[in-house]
């Protein structure tokens, strides 16, 4: 009997996150998903982001994720180098129990 309750409880808990998907994001977020931003008069960088955004949200999402990762990596590398040049080493953080 205990095993049955465990199975039932597990199924119920597994079903919880499905509630989040019960809402159809394609319909309910239509305002944002189909949104177009203006590209006239933008500089090259802004034009690049805005035109990707207008053409494909999926492509825009990949672009955003990759760029943020790359920029984060570059900043980490550059700041580490600068700190080493000025004689400070804060690149390694030690943790103790």
């Amino acid at each position: 009997m205990k095993r049955v309750w465990v199975v039932i409880f597990n199924v119920l808990l597994l079903g919880l996150p499905l509630l989040a998907w019960a809402a159809d994001p394609g319909e309910k977020t239509a305002d944002f998903a189909s949104k177009q931003v203006k590209v006239e008069g933008l500089n090259a960088v802004n034009y690049f982001f805005a035109s990707t955004y207008n053409s494909s949200k999926m492509l825009f999402a990949i672009e955003v994720t990759v760029i943020m990762g790359v920029v984060g990596g570059i900043i980490a590398f550059v700041t580490d180098r600068i700190l080493k040049v000025i004689g400070m080493d804060v690149s390694k953080i030690e943790h103790h129990e």
Partner: peptide, 16 residues
Amino acid sequence: CWTYGVKGVVDIVAAI
């Protein structure tokens, strides 16, 4: 970052 990007609500310039 990716899922909010797909939903069209990330301003990458502000984030940078």
